[in-house]
Design a binder for these strands. Structure first.
Ligand SMILES: [Mn+2]
Ligand SMILES: [Mn+2]
Length: 301
DNA sequence: GGCAATT
DNA sequence: AATTGCCAACGCTCG
DNA sequence: CGAGCG
């Protein structure tokens, strides 16, 4: 019997489920998304179902999570340092923070039990850095963060996302796209681990400026992040210690949206972020971004 | 969500 | 025994 | 340099 088959019976057969994981569950019937009446059991079930697709994106990346133990309508908190009371089997990596002048034990999620444990912690959102733990100074991806500023719309964000895709195509780069689960999109260009964050930042800024010159809708300067009605091509995120929301992570919003990898053909005006949520994403047969782990592009323009 | 400090 | 606190910081950019 | 940013 597969994990997901068993987990369908979660509410009814809790003890049986517990035998399949090292995690000790708590408060399974607690409502974490009040608007949709989604319980913690359903959140755990979601993460178990997407685990086969999601774990690859988490592997060997020190995690930052946002936790909402009392539900997404209550105040949550960021967590980097593994909490006291963490089971011994949860893998962590000690990384020294220069500015904080202390060591932080980041969680590594390299197996499904850790993902289940995070879900039981009400770690709704899981954020990942752009480099892996074994080579932290060298990112393995370039990140285009497409941020529409109201009154710019989701369709505006889609338009700009496709403009960036077109530009990348022209330059000969393969790219992957996902919804952020909130207002914008994320575009990833997988690269060889030979460049610094300054390199990747410059690369995104360069392309952002180019498009901004051609399109009135687009801005790409730091001072323009909140320019009303514009879509900001955000390059700043490409830095050490910064993160993006992971593919397949839930977002802590009332509609329980998911940051969802898409086929480029799915990025068309009219789609809405809420189409991709805790219920719909598990039904998707598509598994875009498969090639992301094979492609390792050089960043020469 | 859960440990630890505080009353 | 019950309540409260704590749980992240960073590098980058602009002025 | 500090403030504001994501
Ligand atoms: Mn964004
Ligand atoms: Mn941004």
């Amino acid at each position: 019997m597969s994990l997901s088959t068993i987990f369908v019976y979660l509410s009814g057969l809790v003890t049986k489920v517990e035998k399949l994981t090292k995690v000790e569950f708590s408060n399974l019937e607690k409502i974490l998304f009040p608007k949709l009446k989604i319980t913690k059991a359903q959140v755990i079930e979601y993460y178990i179902k997407v685990a086969p697709k999601m774990l690859n994106f988490l592997a060997n990346r020190p995690l930052v999570v946002t936790r909402f133990p009392d539900g997404v309508n209550q105040i949550g908190f960021y967590e980097k340092d593994a909490p006291h009371g963490k089971p011994s089997w949860v893998e962590t990596v000690k990384i020294h923070s220069e500015t904080a002048k202390r060591d932080i034990n980041y969680i590594l999620c390299n197996n499904i039990d850790t993902l289940i444990w995070l879900a039981n912690n009400a770690a709704i959102e899981i954020h990942t850095p752009f480099s892996k733990v074994d080579f932290q100074e060298k990112p393995d991806m370039v990140f285009f963060d497409i941020d529409p500023e109201p009154p710019a719309t989701y369709n505006d964000a889609i338009e700009v996302t496709l403009l960036v895709k077109e530009k990348l195509d022209d330059l000969g780069f393969e790219s992957c796209v996902k919804t952020s689960g909130k207002k914008g999109f994320h575009i990833i260009v997988p690269i060889v681990r030979e460049y610094t964050f300054q390199d990747t930042r410059k690369f995104v800024h360069h392309i952002g400026k180019q498009i901004a010159k051609e399109q009135d809708l687009v801005v790409s300067e730091f001072g323009e992040t909140k320019k009303p009605g514009k879509v900001f091509v955000d390059y700043v995120q490409n830095s050490y210690g910064r993160t993006m929301i992971s593919s397949y992570s839930l977002r802590a919003v009332p509609d329980a949206t998911v940051s969802t990898p898409l086929e480029w053909s799915e990025v068309r005006k009219g789609i809405k972020p809420a189409e991709f949520n805790i219920f719909s994403v598990v039904k998707r047969k598509k598994d875009p971004w498969q090639r992301i782990f094979d492609i390792k592009q050089k960043l020469t323009v």
